[in-house]
Amino acid sequence: MLRHGAAGPLFIAPFMVLFLLLFLTPLAYAAYLSLFRQKLIGGTTFVGLENYVTAVKDPLLAQGVVRVAKFFVIQVPVMLVLALLFALALDSGLLRLARVIRLGIFVPYAVPSVVATLMWGYLYGPDFGPFAQLSRKLDLPIPHFLSDGWMLGSLANVVTWEFVGYNMIILFAALRTIPHELYEAAAMDGAGAWRTAWSIKLPALRPALLLTLLFSVIGSFQLFNEPVLLQRIAPDVIDSSYTANFYAYSLAFTGQQVNYAATVSFLLGLVIVIVSYSILLTANRRRTS
């Protein structure tokens, strides 16, 4: 018989083993690689923080981070507003076939991002895409969704289509936890549907909205699959440094600069931590004030 106090560590032991092997160990190895540099003469040599100094001054990395930050500012508010509207509509109980609608909104998240990007790449196509063909039939200018001016918005549209349902489910689940007594009290006070949503539902959704925002920060700065696949049909617009994550991948697997790629990945992780912490700090200050 195991002692009662030993049960807890045994339950979490499988997670800790996997966490150590699949997260901490690769992270430590990447940190180790970032302190070295492969040279033509002398082989691999220890350079300390020299790779980090080079990465901070790297204009390609800076452009990729700025581009992803613009993507975040454009895409995330639209995605979260749509997810919030869908969650409120489903929770209102006024929609017919609510379960079917909920499933229809969530289905795009179940589609792999590779498949979703290939599908939207076909729709965006200026030669055989349906938008281009329809424009030709109506004698209208062909929309260039894959041009330099449209590309960021086109990527935002793909990601929004993929993840609105995921965020909607999180917000909808949070709405279902609100006690019905609050709704009954609001109804007795004469509050309508809009007043109930504004005064009860939205304040109760703040933790869930903060969670979805943090997930969106991590996902946005790790943008990879969509630009990599669209590069094949728009190589003049998307280069190997279009996003910071794409840049790190290109350095490691195309340029064979594994040490510098590890450095870029660490700096990207640092940016994600800073942005996420800033959002949490701002939210906590507003809550306490």
Rank of each mutant, 00 (worst) to 15 (best):
M16H: 11
I169M: 15
F215K: 11
W161Q: 12
P77L: 10
P26R: 14
G8A: 14
T196E: 15
Y247G: 02
F253L: 05
A204T: 10
L268T: 02
V258F: 14
V100L: 13
S240K: 10
G8T: 12
P143Y: 03
I74R: 02
I272S: 06
L61P: 04
A69N: 07
Y249L: 06
S241C: 02
L281D: 15
A98M: 02
A55S: 12
A283L: 09
Q63M: 03
M151Y: 02
A261N: 02
T196H: 09
S199F: 09
V115L: 15
V115H: 00
N225Y: 00
L10S: 15
A98C: 11
G5W: 00
R37T: 10
F221V: 02
I142N: 06
Q38F: 06
R287C: 11
L94F: 14
L267R: 04
T196P: 12
D127I: 00
L123I: 00
L24E: 09
V66H: 07
Y29L: 14
Y122M: 12
S276W: 02
R102M: 02
P112W: 01
R67D: 03
I105H: 02
M1G: 10
T117F: 00
M151D: 04
L49R: 13
M119E: 04
M16P: 15
V17H: 13
I274K: 11
L205N: 11
F128G: 02
R37C: 08
V217W: 04
Q256V: 03
V237P: 00
A174R: 10
K137N: 07
S241A: 10
R67I: 13
R102A: 07
A28I: 01
L49Y: 11
L95C: 05
G42T: 03
N284I: 08
D236E: 06
A7S: 13
D236Q: 09
L182Q: 07
F266Y: 05
L146H: 00
D127N: 09
V56Q: 15
A244P: 07
Y183V: 01
V73K: 07
V53H: 12
L214K: 06
P203N: 12
V100C: 09
A173Q: 01
T254K: 13
L18S: 15
M168L: 11
P141A: 12
K57C: 13
I12P: 13
A261V: 01
I233C: 11
T282L: 15
Y249P: 08
D148C: 08
S220C: 02
V228S: 01
I12G: 15
H144T: 01
P14I: 14
V158N: 00
L40G: 14
E181S: 11
Q222I: 06
L251W: 03
N51Q: 15
R176P: 03
Y277H: 06
M16R: 09
F36E: 08
P207S: 05
V217H: 00
A283M: 13
A252N: 11
A283T: 05
M1T: 04
T117A: 01
L138P: 03
K137C: 08
T177F: 14
R37M: 10
G5N: 08
T282F: 08
I169S: 05
G219K: 04
L61F: 11
V73L: 14
L27S: 10
R96W: 15
S216R: 03
Y242V: 01
M168E: 02
G8I: 03
L214S: 07
D148W: 13
G104M: 03
P235D: 07
